[in-house]
Design a protein around this nucleic acid. Structure first.
Lengths: 126, 126
DNA sequence: TAAACATATGAATAAATGTTCATATGAAAG
DNA sequence: CTTTCATATGAACATTTATTCATATGTTTA
């Protein structure tokens, strides 16, 4: 989008009246904006951490691999709720699992996850 | 909660039938569980990153301080929407601001934020 | 002091999300 | 091969959440 195009759009849509947008800043930052899709993926990724049930699951799995019933017992929640959330965690590749007979054991898929949890903890503990 | 208390509850509530909970694991992990409130705060913290508008705002602010109209222009969204989301970011202390006449300039409050964004990027780019 | 303007905010609406309930799947044991 | 049992899943419901619209606030300039 050229400068002129943007200004035209701004005027047309009347967004923010846009008389005082700082054009230099906007132009500069626009050039380095990542893909729309990438930022979307990023927010989807963080969304997974943004639910207390899932955070708790991630936390307990950071201590030990565990089956669905173990997690349900620890969190005092129903099996179905845990299973649904594990699916979300699986889809985002935050957990992996292995099957042992009738039991499925879940664990964290890599240690990025622990790093991110730790960073978050640090921030809220400030 | 003692082992017996938990088992009683499990039986009573019928959660997961609980015949095959791995008691050793559950007991061990229960001992190191952080405060309920702390995990709640943690999920609230990550929830802020879990929206594409807010992620975009955080990203553009990582490039330069900016006023509300600049952000609205860059993201092609209304002023009100941006302002509402900035409030959320402010409340969670992810952004700070300074006033200059009629204009309010926002910026990231510290570099934890950039670290977390970068970790997230790394994960999704794998 | 009045007008202009950047930002903030409350209420309403639409969309997304988490849990529950009922039931399905698939592995093991009899 | 039938039953049992751990886990998975679909549908329904309740709650949360993001955006829009209209308007308020607070600063500057005429």
């Amino acid at each position: 989008m050229t400068k002129q195009e943007r200004i035209e759009r701004e005027v047309q849509e009347g967004v923010c009246e846009f008389m005082h947008v700082h054009e230099e800043i906007v132009e500069k930052v626009e050039k380095v904006m990542p893909d729309e899709q990438q930022l979307l993926d990023l927010s989807e990724f963080f969304k997974v951490f943004g639910d207390s049930t899932r955070i708790k699951i991630l936390y307990v799995l950071s201590q030990s691999e565990m089956c669905v019933c173990d997690i349900a017992s620890l969190l005092q929640m129903g099996q179905s709720a845990i299973s649904h959330q594990l699916r979300v965690l699986k889809q985002m590749q935050l957990v992996k699992f292995r099957r042992d007979g009738k039991t499925v054991f879940y664990s964290l898929s890599d240690n990025h996850i622990q790093t991110i949890l730790a960073q978050g903890m640090e921030h809220i503990c400030e």
